[in-house]
Design a binder for these strands. Sequence first.
RNA 1: GGCCCGGUCGUCUAACGGUUAGGACGUCAGAUUUUCAUUCUGGUAAUCGGGGUUCGAUUCCCCGUCGGGCUGCCA
Length: 504
Amino acid sequence: MSVRVRFAPSPTGPLHIGGVRTALFNYLFAKKNNGKLILRIEDTDQTRYVEGAENYIVEALQWVGIEFDESVQKGGIYAPYRQSDRKNIYSEQINFLLKNKKAYYAFDTPEELEQMRIHLQESKTPVQHYNFITRDKMKNSFTLSDEDVKQKITSGEPYVVRFDMPANKEVIMNDLIRGEIKVNSSTLDDKILFKSDGLPTYHLANIVDDHLMEITHVIRGEEWLPSLPLHILLYDAFGWNPPEFAHLPLILKPNGKGKLSKRDGDQGGFPVFPIEWIDPSTNEKSTGYREYGYLPQAVVNMLALLGWNPGTEQEIFSISELSELFDILKVQKAGAKFDPKKTKWFNQQHLKKLDTNALAEIYNKDLKTKNIDAKFDFVAKVVDLVKDRAVFASDLWDLSNYFFIPPENYDEKAVKKFWKDDTLDIIRHLHSLFSGYNDFTSNTIENNVKVWIEQNQLSFGKVLNPLRILLVGNTIGPHLFDIIELLGKEETLKRISKGIKKFS
RNA sequence: GGCCCGGUCGUCUAACGGUUAGGACGUCAGAUUUUCAUUCUGGUAAUCGGGGUUCGAUUCCCCGUCGGGCUGCCA
């Protein structure tokens, strides 16, 4: 049987970076096993519907490079792929469970349920659930006569359908990552499978769809582990074979206390969403990895190694390398704390691997938004010179803006440190020296200047630092003579003259 | 409270039951450099605690402890 896995997000807001990792692991697993990856939208909670969330999910996943074989957009033979479009399927399936006494009707109001919970809490019962004990005191198929139930339903009274959770049954499960897990069903509850709004809950919908869509492996977050026994029992109730399960460890806050959340990103100054999200109700904007300047391949690399590794000492991978190497059995059991610093390092590494033209392409777009129209060749040369010191593509501007705009001011500290009484004379000499050069290439100028420095018994620092200040505005940047060559004779002399005027 | 899952440097992690417990990020120091950055070299630092099993436990078992998740007509 060929592998079929799914990523099943709920369109209740932007996709969290943890969700992206779950999608990634599904993708890698599918690729590794020559299987298919399905995107299924789980929108059975209409009260939590958020405008734009579904589009966001699709765009975000596309950005990181996760492609689906079947989805709402792409279609497929198991369509529809949006749960709100599959309502009739769930009603049919819930009737099957009802008919076979695996599920039952319940008419308790939210207030009555709340009462029950308070009661159980006060009585300090060890297991505080709507279950085989407490249901005898509630309004449901067990306590009401068949006629009453029928009457209530036909009269339009709201009802839910609950799972008839058996008592004292050892449920033995297997998880690809964690191994065997045992739970006694008496600690579980009669979960609602079908809501009074006519839609299924996640529990019902995901079992029905996974079965109908012939999903072979369910790879999802660890937060689903507690409902695994329910799911197994549901497959059993339907008489279906369950797929294999793998529950991924959670991504934790950098300090390790709890799941990573949006707040952590705001406080720690790092994104937790793949791409920018603007909350439609508050207009609040959250910057994404994309807007922050992260490369998608770096995000993928970082995410893949958060909770998994191939067992070698290699750290930098492309998504296709990961697809080759991925092994679900090697996924870590413990939650992994998110490390913003290492994430930056991953980006730096991938930025370095990027070829100059590709990076220049990105930078050129950036320049255009700043209304700077430079020749591509020139941009590429600039990029080549400064790319080693960039962590983000967005660093490029800070690193090289002086190539496009002459410095307006000179850094005060740098001036104070390097501009001495005799500096102006030296700079004047350099100006006339440069004016005489016809060959304005880095090496030639460097050799000439060095000879001149030695002849006049000056030091490099004394000459080159002030010169750098006039050309760059500060004592930073790549090899000075490379800068000079790129700037060209005319521009170099212009900047020196400007400096002479300023300091005269 | 109940149920479930976890615990190797600060962080991500490696280690057929036998290793001087390895690598990476970070950090610190040094080297290189006209500057900043890069780069290079080196240092730093860990098996949660207690019992077992074993000739020998990071590794297997039990207890404790700590951490996390779940406990909704949410997913």
